[in-house]
């Protein structure tokens, strides 16, 4: 079974409070924030490794990212994936989700032969959750997102996806594109043996030319959406500090609750 896992390096979500917008340049300031594999993408790698343990085969990582993403893919190889492809080109910069899905689809088609394509349900940075569905459409394969359970029996899959207050059950056949939610599993820890093995695994970098993509179909030029200005949320609260003994503060809160009409 040949399984692809699409992963994305993102700034570490534990540091998002430090991200801000420069009021003059209007550009994002995120200096010093380390990059990590998008957390739920690790669940996708884990799901792939479990399927490989069950059915045999190979796990291939694919990422569209700048060249310095190599280290993040190596981390995925250390976790247990067999091979990695980094799709990297200046022409890909500014891609929205649809243009990103085009690049990933081109890479996956060029590698070829996948029985299953997995991705994290959403990225921590932009959080659209579009990629699994859009990739499925561009690959011409059935797809589901927010998977919380996945069972492989021969070539057929039994799946559960997350919905509000519950889940939906599906059946389908390979090949498919699936976006996994973090509930699906707990990603394994990487072993030191995995770290040792990672750098000897095949690693390929492809750009626009290797993927034979039209520059007009990727990057900013190929994106149906265009980003405008960035801004910071405005909260406009008065931030009045209630002071005194706990009892006094509680009294003031009771008055506020009454004024708001939740306490008669």
């Amino acid at each position: 079974m040949k399984i692809a896992v699409c992963i994305k390096p993102v700034p570490d979500p534990n540091h998002y409070n430090k991200i801000t917008v420069n009021p003059e340049t209007k550009l994002l300031e995120r200096k010093g924030i380390p990059m990590v594999i998008n957390p739920v993408d690790k669940n996708a790698i884990e799901a792939a490794l479990q399927l490989k343990e069950q059915a045999g085969g190979k796990v291939v990582l694919v990422s569209m990212a700048p060249p310095d993403a190599r280290e993040k893919l190596t981390e995925g190889l250390a976790m247990g994936a067999d091979e990695a492809f980094l799709l990297s080109d200046r022409a890909f910069a500014g891609s929205d989700t649809l243009a990103t899905a085009r690049v990933l689809a081109a890479g996956l088609k060029k590698i070829g032969g996948f029985d299953l394509i997995l991705a994290g349900a959403e990225s921590a940075d932009s959080g659209t959750s579009h990629i699994p569905s859009q990739l499925g459409e561009l690959m011409g394969l059935p797809h589901l997102n927010h998977l919380i359970e996945l069972n492989l029996e021969a070539a057929s899959l039994k799946m559960k996806t997350k919905i509000e207050y519950g889940y939906a059950e599906y059946e389908g056949n390979l090949p498919m594109v699936l976006g996994v939610a973090k509930e699906i599993n707990k990603p394994r820890y990487t072993t030191l043996m995995g770290v040792v093995a990672a750098r000897n695994k095949p690693f390929t970098i492809w750009g626009l030319d290797e993927l034979e993509l039209d520059p007009a179909s990727t990057g900013l030029a190929g994106s149906p959406t265009q980003p405008g200005e960035l801004h910071l949320p405005r909260h406009g609260r008065k931030a009045e500090l209630l002071e005194g003994e706990p009892g006094d503060i509680a009294g003031k809160i009771v008055a506020i609750l009454r004024a708001a009409g939740v306490l008669v």
């Binding site: 190596t74 981390e75 250390a78 820890y189 072993t191 770290v195 040792v196 750098r199």
Partner: peptide
Amino acid sequence: SENQVLLRKVVRDF
């Protein structure tokens, strides 16, 4: 080395 940096990261995660 890069490998030692990665090793530190995986140990730290655990």
